[in-house]
Design a binder for these strands. Structure first.
Length: 260
DNA sequence: ATGGCAAATTGAATTTGA
């Protein structure tokens, strides 16, 4: 079973990239974030035609939006309105006996102060609520993917020193995300696969003149597995080359292969 | 206080991303 996650930054604008990537990666499931598209405008037919006919979508105009696109049937399609907001940041489904959670965690704005910045407050509330949720309902046979907008380890950013006051890599976000993994019954599957030392990035800013030359990336996207699945992780791929596409997303696809 | 950009909306400027 191959599962891929990708913050696509507009699924309609990048539909050709998505269709090409589905085939190239030969993924069974593709989880998208920031689809920025209402459900009635989601390009479901094109994906069905390409060979991925099963979809679970939750979109809204202009912002956010998550989707699960699958070769195999999806059941138990559901979502939670985290922090009480109806803002299309989560969808879950069961595929081939596996419970899949697809998240788009709030970015958190610029200022890393929850008293001055409501967006940062919302982000921390969101992570705290995820922690208590999975603490109470320990996952099994589950995979959690998505753009979590936090790079938890020093090796998840180009410079832990220069980004220590930058939202996505502040101490409180890093601590809270690691607590969510630990208390929530998850394993950071991507980090576990590559080991603690390697620098791993999944996002590079649009603002760089040359994203590859400056290589100022961050690992904001994640694939976690419930601890019972730890021994089933066979392979993990970060498709960094996707950042060099024509009109790319600023995030790249990450794929995990699970053995049965 | 910021950014070398990009996308979606509503109509050239604003909001959001991170």
């Amino acid at each position: 079973m191959k599962i891929t996650t990708w913050n696509i930054n507009s699924v309609r604008l990048r539909l050709p990239l998505v269709l090409a990537k589905l085939t190239e990666l030969d993924t069974d499931v593709l989880c998208l974030q920031e689809t920025k598209t209402q459900d009635e405008h989601f390009p479901a037919e094109a994906m069905a035609k390409a060979g991925w006919p099963h979809i679970a979508i939750r979109g809204e105009k202009s912002y956010n939006g998550v989707a699960i696109i699958s070769r195999l049937p999806l059941t138990d399609i559901s979502h939670i309105n985290w922090t009480g907001r109806v803002d299309c940041r989560h969808i879950s489904a069961v595929v081939d006996g596996l419970t899949l959670h697809n998240f788009y965690v709030p970015a958190g704005g610029d200022e890393p102060d929850r008293d001055k910045n409501p967006k940062f407050d919302h982000k921390l509330d969101f992570i705290a609520e995820m922690t208590s949720h999975f603490l109470q309902q320990q996952p099994s046979c589950s995979v959690l993917v998505g753009d979590l907008n936090i790079a938890p380890l020093a090796e998840d950013v180009w410079s832990t020193r220069q980004l220590r006051n930058t939202v996505s890599h502040t101490a409180i976000e890093r601590e809270m995300l690691l607590a969510l993994i630990e208390q929530g019954g998850w394993l950071d599957g991507v980090r576990a696969h590559f080991g603690p030392k390697e620098l791993l990035f999944s996002w590079w800013s649009y603002r760089a003149r040359d994203w590859a030359a400056s290589n100022r990336g961050r690992r904001l996207d994640h694939i976690w597995v419930s601890t019972d699945l730890a021994h089933q992780v066979e392979a993990v791929t970060i498709d960094s080359a996707a950042r060099g596409a024509e009109k790319p997303s600023d995030h790249v696809p990450m794929m995990m292969t699970l053995r049965p």
